[in-house]
Nucleic acid binder design. Structure first.
Length: 749
RNA sequence: GGCCGGAUGGCGGAAUUGGUAUACGCGUUCGACUUAAAAUCGAAUGGAGCAAUCCGUACGGGUUCAAGUCCCGUUCCGGCUACCA
């Protein structure tokens, strides 16, 4: 018998899978389908890391598991290629992003193939391929036609380092998510998607999804729906101030009003006496960076000099301005109820404003019911070169016009210099010829903003259904067969991407393009893999484990895959342990070596037990304990010997984790890979162990026949006549408990 | 500050959902094979104790015949969120 040589075996099977196009999927009428995908990667120059491997292997285990069960399985793959790293690289080196992207994709593909993933390679999708982004632009135009893509002048987060606008979720602690530079507010005309139109549906349908509760909660909080009321307060000068509150029932305790510094109409409220102070406060507030606002929570504010009437108490209450009230939420004005609200109380105490205990009134008495959301519309324009061009052009008056669909794609022009200028325009503005476009005989100028990368990834799962379709973004028949996606696996984008794709799904369903309203049935959110020291892997710390090194060191892809499934619960972070990798390698080695010594033995009980355990564990995504069960099985086979049926079963169960080794074993055993079934009748053994506890502590174990378990009296007789048990029960027994299900007797003495 | 997770041997982690705590792997120790080492195979391995036994799932209480699991309180660690009225 030859020895286990993973690299040799893996090369052999990868070649076979490639040549036979083993994983290409086709729609087959009447055959149950299963579609799985990972969140497609950004192909960085560094290649695959161990986190990708964990993510992709989870998908692969499920893919192969369901294939072996006879389902028609689609497992595609793609690349999320627009983005800043490629553009920054271009700025630095002058290399076109198109070129470096191609190099990186080729590298990623090569590496993914070395891992033996059951991918349908004919369905690769790449967001920066004009054949792809043509349809991203088409999607934009559909949203534009329905008024859900619109322009608005507003203050936006601006990163002075990357020279681009950022979306709310791309600002972390007041800093740019990519370069860490402090962001500032800049007033610009920007494109938005009207995601708020779907706020209610996005929220209400969350509970129907088989997604981790954590993610569902985060999305709910992000949408942030609160039901309350708008209430009008009449000011001295006759002006109305409408406040939003979730507690209209506490209105009798409202002892002052607070306006946001940016409140529209503030000028009309402020008295002449207070004008200077208020204007100075407002100017200071606008200057304050977000970091300062977050770090300093000490309440500040100024009195406007005006009063308004509380409609419930008819009392005159002062109107203040303070930056703890946000202009962008509700009406930018609140009624302060310091007796009920901690922030209002803090403010009242600091500025010596009255705090009045309040009795509650009927919620609808003084206001009109109103629902507000924390979620804002999705800012999608980016002043970057390496993104999908927004298919819009402007006429001489500056009015936007959609590029006609038959002129798509709007291709990214080649430029000499990728550096954006500080006018807030991308390097696209430098492509003078490209800028000119004729629509309906009229000369126009193209939009130079590109789309947020999240727009490109908001529909790629549908492209997988018909990736080469040149008549439509997706084929309606293909998508009806394959989608929605059954399993989507990732470790990031809890809110952004996973909310945007739901939004687009609902929109395109409304336009009749999709036959479902939720794109992802089940979501698995896997944990990160950290360095052996428990810290995040990073190049600068020099603690990065390269998965390709693990393979090439001689362990092979099967060990790497199986180890990453064995490392711990898939949804928890885990630390890499190089020695445990060796343990998994030993296990696979032991599997292979069993082939050399096939015996005439009957292990039907443990075999059935293992089939059941592995099958159920995979259904529950307990991949780590599934591998442990296989290890136990192998340990047992080493003790008692393995029949060829044992080895066939072992190889079939092992295949989702270690497909090359399992394929090799099955070939040598001349067997197919059909997923084995267990029979419950082999799981009930003739004898069972009855545990005897005295006062809840384990004191004895009795072997009894399984039939006796039905006869409580017989069991108790056996227990009570046991010599060891009698030692504890000399002073009599107060209570006897027999638990058949647990095969357990507890005696209270 | 708010919400959500965690805390189990020397280490990573199991535990049928209230019923034999520590499966599986790593590490360690011993043995077999070998001239030797590696590899491989086998055995042992929570702590204390000669023992019978006692103590053990972050800490303090509670419920129960029985608690890692349920309840109350505390500490520490991680994630998200951050003045959202």
């Amino acid at each position: 018998m030859d020895r286990y040589e993973p690299l040799k075996i893996e090369e052999k099977w990868q070649k076979i899978w490639e040549e036979t196009e083993a994983f290409s999927a086709k729609e087959i009428d009447g055959m149950p389908k299963m579609m799985l995908a990972e969140m497609f990667p950004y192909p960085s120059g560094a290649g695959l890391h161990v986190g990708h491997v964990r993510n992709f292997t989870i998908v692969d285990v499920l893919t192969r598991f369901y294939r072996q069960q006879g389902l028609n399985v689609l497992r595609p793959f793609g690349y999320d290629t627009f983005g800043l790293p490629a553009e920054n690289y271009a700025i630095k080196t002058g290399t076109a992003p198109q070129e470096i992207t191609k190099v990186n994709i080729d590298n990623f593909r090569k590496q993914a193939k070395k891992l033996g993933f059951a991918i349908d390679w004919s369905r690769e999708v790449n967001t920066s391929d004009p054949e792809y982004y043509k349809w991203t632009q088409w999607c934009f135009l559909q949203l534009y036609k329905k008024g859900l893509a619109y322009q608005k002048e507003s203050y936006q987060w601006w990163c002075p380092e990357d020279q681009t606008v950022l979306a709310n979720e791309q600002v972390e602690n007041g800093k740019c998510w990519r370069c860490g530079h402090e962001v500032e507010k800049k007033k610009m005309k920007q494109w938005f998607f009207k995601i708020t139109e779907y706020a209610d549906e996005l929220l209400d349908e969350i509970d129907n999804l088989e997604w981790p509760e954590k993610i569902k909660t985060m999305q709910k909080n992000w949408i942030g729906r609160s039901a309350g009321a708008e209430i009008d307060f009449k000011a001295d000068n006759g002006k109305n101030i409408t406040v939003f509150t979730t507690r209209p029932d506490t209105i009798k305790g409202a002892t002052f009003i607070v306006l946001a510094p940016e409140y529209q109409g503030l000028d009309f409220i402020v008295t002449d006496d207070c004008k200077d102070a208020v204007m100075k406060y407002k100017a200071d507030a606008l200057k304050k960076s977000e970091v300062e606002r977050q770090e300093n929570k000490e309440k500040t504010g100024v009195f406007t000099g005006s009063y308004a009437v509380n409609p419930a108490t008819k009392e005159k209450i002062p109107i203040w301005v303070a930056d703890y009230v946000l202009a962008g939420y509700g009406t930018g004005a609140i009624m302060a109820v310091p007796a009920m609200d901690d922030r209002d109380r803090e403010f009242a105490e600091k500025f010596d404003l009255p705090i009045v205990e309040t009795e509650l009134v009927d919620r609808d008495l003084y206001g009109t019911p109103k629902v507000t959301y924390k979620m804002r519309d999705w800012l999608i324009s980016r002043q970057r070169y390496w993104g999908c061009p927004i298919p819009i052009a402007y006429d001489k008056e500056g009015n936007p016009h959609p590029i006609p669909e038959d002129q798509l794609p709007v291709i990214i022009p080649e430029v000499e210099d990728y550096q954006p200028d500080n006018s807030g325009r991308s390097a696209l503005a430098k492509a003078k010829d490209w800028l000119k476009v004729t629509i309906d005989g009229e000369e126009m100028t193209r939009e130079t903003d590109t789309l947020d990368g999240y727009a490109c990834s908001s529909w790629y799962l549908w492209r997988y259904a018909s990736p080469h379709d040149n008549k439509a973004a997706w084929d309606s028949e293909a998508i009806k067969y394959w989608e929605p996606v059954d399993y989507y696996v990732g470790a990031d984008h809890a809110v952004a991407h996973l909310l945007y794709i739901r939004f687009w799904c609902k929109f395109f369903a409304d336009q009749g393009y999709l036959p479902f309203r939720e794109p992802i049935k089940r979501l698995l959110y896997n944990g990160y893999i950290n360095a052996p020291d428990g810290k995040k892997m990073s190049k600068s710390k020099g603690n990065v484990i390269d998965p390709l090194d693990v393979i090439n060191d001689g362990y092979g892809a099967d060990t790497l895959r199986t180890y990453e499934m064995f490392i711990g619960p898939y949804d928890m972070d885990a630390a890499w342990d190089p020695r445990s990798v060796g343990g998994v390698y030993r296990f696979l080695n032991r599997c292979y070596n069993l082939l050399g010594d096939i015996k005439e033995v009957d292990n039907i009980i443990i075999r059935n037990k293992t089939i059941k355990k592995v099958t159920e564990d995979i259904h529950k995504y307990n991949f780590n304990t599934a591998v442990a069960a296989l290890m136990e099985y192998v340990n047992e086979l080493y003790k008692v010997g393995a029949s060829s049926e044992d080895l066939v079963t072992l190889a079939k169960l092992l295949k989702p984790f270690a497909p090359h080794l399992a394929s090799e074993m099955l070939e040598k055993l001349d067997a197919d890979d059909e997923w084995p079934k267990w029979d419950e009748k082999y799981l009930v053994s003739d004898t069972v162990t009855v545990v005897v506890q005295i006062n809840g502590k384990l004191r004895a174990k009795l072997e009894v026949s399984a039939d006796d378990l039905e006869d409580e009296k017989k069991i108790m007789d056996m227990v009570l006549s046991d010599r060891k048990v009698q030692k504890y029960t000399e002073d009599g027994i107060k209570k006897q408990i027999f638990v058949k299900k647990a095969k357990l007797v507890n005696l209270v003495v």
